[in-house]
């Protein structure tokens, strides 16, 4: 289980209140430490830790490899989880989604390129971090605010009907796996 880190450990935030730390290795072999309270925000990671029987004594000796998430996204995720580890449960938002204002710290964290945001939300989905999922979705949803269908097509990279038809034609013209 133990994997030797190939790059220096990224210490995202000093953890004073809770001494239990875990190590996570990203797909590109970056190693992160994360506190127990923070890692609990990820259902996937916490289930893994529980199933592996990691404890305060052996956690740091048994880094958890996460092959679906690269170092850049993992750094954002660890920062997010450490930031929000003591948050109280937020009330479920009503239909009036715009009433919820994304905190400035999180808005800054998620001010990233659309491609990075796409990868981050995939990682968030894989690691099952509901709060970060809500925040990412909020950022993506906000892109639609006050936009026309023509603008939305560009913002969300939605092909026109003609482009969809062309794609479909080229897909049906291309030879299959055996062809």
């Amino acid at each position: 289980m133990s994997v030797e880190p190939e790059v220096p450990i990224v210490q995202v935030e000093e953890v004073r209140e809770n001494p239990v730390l875990y190590k996570i290795i990203s797909s590109d072999n970056h190693v992160f430490t994360i506190s127990e309270h923070a890692v609990k925000l990820s259902k996937t990671l916490w289930d893994l830790i529980t199933n592996l029987g990691l404890t305060a004594e052996n956690a740091l000796d048994n880094p958890i490899p996460v092959e679906n998430v690269n170092g850049k996204n993992m750094e954002t995720i660890v920062q997010f989880c450490e930031r929000h580890k003591y948050d109280e449960e937020e009330p479920e938002y009503t239909n009036y989604i715009r009433e919820f204002v994304l905190p400035e710290w999180d808005r800054q964290l998620l001010s990233i390129d659309n491609e990075e945001l796409f990868q981050l939300i995939l990682a968030t989905n894989y690691l099952d971090i509901q709060k970060l999922m809500d925040y990412c979705c909020r950022v993506i949803g906000d892109m639609a605010k006050d936009k026309t269908p023509e603008e939305l097509r560009i913002i969300y990279g939605i092909p026109t009907d003609a482009e969809d038809d062309a794609l479909e034609r080229s897909a049906s013209d291309s030879p299959g796996p055996s062809g």
Binding site: I97, D113, D134, I155, Y156
Partner: peptide, 29 residues
């Protein structure tokens, strides 16, 4: 906010994630 250099590929998201994004928009959107 996010860079506009490239579109956000909304319909490349997994179905379950797309559903969550739709929940973060308003019905008119």
């Amino acid at each position: 906010m996010t860079s506009t250099s490239s579109p956000f590929p909304l319909f490349h998201l997994p179905h379950v994630v797309l559903s969550e994004v739709f929940n973060s928009t308003t019905p008119d959107e």
